[in-house]
Design a binder for these strands. Structure first.
Lengths: 124, 124
DNA sequence: CCGAATCCAGTACGATACTG
DNA sequence: CAGTATCGTACTGGATTCGG
């Protein structure tokens, strides 16, 4: 099955799995984290500082999820204080292409969407 | 600001707006609906039948959200029984490119992710 | 046929406090 | 520094019922 040629098969098992994959990308912080790690490996607190508004709890959970899916690799350097490095795996790197494409689209059409929302809300 | 060149600016107002746009795409059914409407305009019940598992409620809410963002156009043909058509706007059509890219990536790497999840769960 | 209204469960997310 | 534990809230999403 090829999603680009068979848009009808939205109810198959394959597409259910695709949905599960997309669900992780749909998480609030995943895209931002992936785009930040795309540049180079980072430490836990570097990510936390870079992504304004994320809580420690959600950063931990989100990184665990990305690690579980094989998109991010976690390396612990035994020392005091602890030093934990996160980096994209090859699979994670391959994700950056479509993710950046989506991010760019979102950025380019931000104004259009804002205007459409304002117009829609004005009517109702 | 260009998201492809300034991955550091994840905390700016612009990126907050991008997050809001991505949130709609992150909704459980949005991508499937957009991909289905990409082929041609459809009626409410056609969409419902095509996307297995979606409830009437969520289809209604999701279509409203897409309409609000100017991605989908809703046309009512006054008649009995009612006939309502949904179609992508030009803005919505421009979204299909990155969305299909993401969908294709998800489909191609489904197996990798499944394997990574199984391996991760086996250790913990 | 195309919804709206209501009710309810699961969970994503945040705030705070605590630990090796 | 890099988490874990606990609690509380808000929202997503499903089931069901009702209406034009």
């Amino acid at each position: 099955m090829d999603v680009t040629n068979h848009p009808h098969d939205l109810q198959t098992t394959d597409c259910q799995k695709v949905s599960q994959v997309l669900a992780r990308i749909g998480e609030k912080w995943s895209v931002l984290i992936i785009m930040f790690l795309a540049e180079k490996p980072r430490r836990f607190s570097e990510i936390k500082r870079a992504i304004n508004g994320i809580s420690q709890r959600m950063l931990t959970l989100c990184l665990r999820g990305l690690e579980r899916d094989g998109l991010v690799k976690r390396t612990v350097f035994a020392a005091m204080p602890p030093h934990v490095q996160y980096e994209l795996t090859p699979l994670g790197i391959s994700l950056t292409t479509p993710v950046v494409a989506l991010g760019s689209w979102a950025f380019e059409h931000m104004a259009d969407i804002d205007a459409a929302r304002a117009a829609f809300d004005a009517e109702n």
